[in-house]
Nucleic acid binder design. Structure first.
Length: 658
RNA sequence: GCCCAUGUAGCUCAGUCGGCAGAGCACCUCCUUGGUAAGGAGGAGGUCACCGGUUCAAGUCCGGUCAUGGGCUCCA
């Protein structure tokens, strides 16, 4: 199913997005979701996060009233901006998932502070109930009109449309404002609810998305069918902010980013490191069962290796500049682990009998991300990834690939990430510069990927031009309960590296053959995955991952001894227990443990000590509590850990012990 | 890298017209010794991101730099 309009599982209810002809005022691929989204768009992750690129493919039904209103609001916005800044030239102004935007070419960009005045004028225009009038012109007349209007960007676009064979182009006019636009629009501005839209923010955007072209000022607006829905969106956005991994990461002391160390280079604090360690333990076990072997490789490497791999010709802008050494090769920080793993494969001759060879490493890599791209833990310059490379024979490729996809599914089930889909990234045959040249290999490997995906019951979409330079890939897009969607991991099929590194195995026939390589990283990077989980869990980890698994709170100083005994019993089983021995009140201690989202709190006092028991209170259920013997409690927590139960979800059944 | 915004105590944030640096929480000390989400009192803590300029005087005005946030581009 390689169609762009693939099933859109769980992410957006089927049928919500439909293909549509592009509105002329909109950039190619406007994003449109008519009607209130099934899941509030705020849920889309952190506030103000741009609509997903994925949605650019999914256009919608032009007949929808909401779309008409949003698109019309884009015109009204342009009209209002024109009043404030007559020099503004028009770019594109489409409806988007949460409203609309319009791009303007301006001598001096607008600022956030100009928005109130613009919005005021927009409301006035809406109140004036101006009629929208469509005017169709032959293409050449349309171009001439735009030239008279002094709209260079629109002229460019109209010429392009004409060149594509559009015989006639339409304008929409309302009041004193006219814009090249396919429509449709509301018939009068009065059809727009004046209290259901709100200007959101200004941003920069390159004309036609091309960084070599002028930077335009983009004004984003929110627009919904009603005031209530707008308010609901804003509330959702606020709730997402509460779960933002940067906020929770600071509050829970998971990580810190210090300018002294460098942007995009997070420091993992003790609590965050526990989470990483648990993820690594999970990966180690899972990979061991799946027949992987662990390896370890250095962080810096001679330049020559990256000429061999092709990183220097194809990926140099993504790498930190080299370390220069007198009389020696340059050294580079590694941006990927693959070349090292290939060298491990190649360190001695390989037999077909030892394939597939699966080499795994939680490896740290460094990439030079543009400063403007950095964002919390989601986009960093130093990251540690759940990497592995599978070297296999052609006849094993399909099975290995399927196993890789299944491993993803296993993890997603475990973490209760029910919303995920895959993007099959294929190469763009006409773009020779971006990809290693080998048409046959591209065709073959892309064919295998498509075949494997075709047999799996996981939704996917194909996209051209997004392959890695050395082969096609599958990106796993996951969405958490807050609605943040991220590329969690990537599985790549690689036919180029075996050639570049001259990797071989001796086959049954005694002759050397090329292996295939699968690159995979189901848990992605610690940075992105932990950030994602923090938001998914709202900072409340399951017992097995929690930095502090059990907080032990004595009801009074007299019971500190017993509290210590309880904690010691837990620690002897390698459970992370902490006694609150502060001088605070009992209520305060419970509050502190709760605010820290510790999954299990045990309160101990005279009653408990007499019976050798604890009173157990859980984060998920709060007030509910039970009293049980210490041994039973320890065994229960052990079972929670051993089973990696997601006891941070209220519907998870607790293990029965003894 | 480009556009916009922001930067005051560990955190969240006040600080008016340029005129002595503020609050709550957290932290420390003392009192309180308790049965399920903030007991009480006191204390300490700031080169107002950094550099420069204007001014008798700058947290406040201007310029630059750095960082963060939101976009664009790019990607795990």
């Amino acid at each position: 199913m390689a169609e762009g309009r693939a099933r859109t599982p769980a992410l957006a209810p089927a049928g919500l997005r439909r293909r549509v002809r592009r509105p002329w005022t909109g950039p190619p691929r406007a994003i449109i979701i008519p009607g209130p989204p099934a899941r509030p768009p705020a849920a889309r992750g952190s506030p103000g996060r741009a609509p997903m690129h994925e949605d650019h493919e999914a256009n919608a039904d032009m007949g929808e009233p909401l779309l008409r209103r949003r698109h019309s609001l884009a015109h009204v916005l342009a009209q209002a901006v024109r009043e404030v800044r007559p020099d503004a030239r028009l770019g594109f102004g489409p409806a988007i998932e949460t409203g609309f935007y319009y791009d303007f070419l301006l001598e001096t960009p607008l600022s956030d502070h100009d928005l109130a005045a613009v919005e005021e004028r927009m409301r006035r225009i809406v109140r004036e109930d101006q009629p929208f009038q469509r005017v169709d012109l032959p293409a050449d007349e349309a171009v001439a009109r735009l030239e008279r209007m002094g709209e260079p960007l629109k002229v460019e676009w109209a010429r392009e449309l004409a060149a594509r064979g559009e015989a006639s182009l339409s304008f929409y006019e309302n009041g004193a404002f006219a814009d090249l636009c396919e429509g449709p629009h509301v018939s009068r501005t009065g059809e727009i609810a004046a209290d259901a839209f709100k200007l959101d923010k200004v941003a920069g955007a390159y004309w036609r998305g091309d960084e070599k072209r002028p930077m335009l000022t983009r004004v984003y607006g929110l627009a919904f069918p009603s005031r209530d829905e707008l308010d609901a969106f804003l509330e959702q956005r606020r709730l997402a902010e509460e779960r933002d991994h940067r906020k929770l990461g600071r509050e829970l002391e998971l990580f810190a980013i210090s300018p002294e160390v460098g942007p995009g280079l997070p420091l993992w604090l003790p609590h965050g490191t526990v989470v990483r360690d648990e993820l690594e333990a999970l990966a180690r076990e899972t990979e061991f069962r799946a027949g992987y072997e662990r390896v370890a490789t250095p962080h810096i490497t001679r330049a020559q290796l990256y000429y061999t791999s092709g990183h220097l010709p194809y990926y140099q802008e993504g790498m930190f500049p080299p370390m220069r050494l007198e009389g020696e090769d340059d050294y580079y920080l590694k941006p990927m682990n693959c070349p090292h793993h290939h060298m491990i494969y190649a360190h001695r001759p390989r037999s077909y009998r030892e394939l597939p060879l699966r080499l795994a490493e939680y490896g740290s890599v460094y990439r030079y991300e543009q400063s403007g791209a950095l964002s919390g833990l989601l986009r960093v310059r130093g990251m540690t990834m759940n990497d592995a490379h599978i070297y296999c024979r052609p006849d094993q490729l399909e099975e290995e690939l399927r196993a890789v996809v299944e491993m993803h599914r296993y993890y997603y089930d475990l973490f209760r990430l029910s919303s995920f889909w895959m993007r099959l990234s294929l190469h763009e045959p006409t773009d020779g510069h971006k990809y290693v040249e080998d048409p046959e290999a591209w065709a073959y490997s892309e064919g295998v990927l498509k075949r494997v995906l075709a047999t799996l019951d996981i939704p996917h979409r194909a996209r051209t031009g997004e392959a890695a330079f050395y082969g096609p890939k599958i990106d796993f897009q996951i969405r958490n309960v807050v609605g943040r969607e991220e590329t969690a991991s990537t599985a790549q099929l690689d036919f180029a590296m075996p050639q570049r590194f001259d990797l071989a195995y001796i086959g049954e026939d005694g002759q050397p053959h090329r292996p295939y390589i699968i690159h995979r990283a189901p848990l992605g990077t610690h940075e992105r995955f932990v950030a994602f989980l923090v938001e998914h869990f709202g900072g409340a980890f399951p017992t097995w991952m929690a930095p502090v698994q059990v907080a032990v709170i004595p009801v009074g100083e007299r019971f500190l001894g017993y509290a210590g005994k309880v904690a010691a019993a837990l620690r002897s089983h390698l459970l992370r227990a902490q006694v609150d021995d502060s001088a605070e009140s009992l209520n305060k201690k419970i509050r502190r443990a709760t605010v820290a989202k510790v999954p299990n709190v045990v309160v101990v006092g005279g009653r408990d000590e007499e019976q050798g028991a604890v009173t157990w209170r859980r984060y998920v259920s709060q007030k509910e509590q039970i009293s049980l013997p210490l041994e039973a409690f320890v065994a229960t927590v052990q079972a929670l850990r051993a089973g990696r139960l997601m006891d941070n979800f209220a519907d998870t059944e607790l293990p029965k012990v003894g």
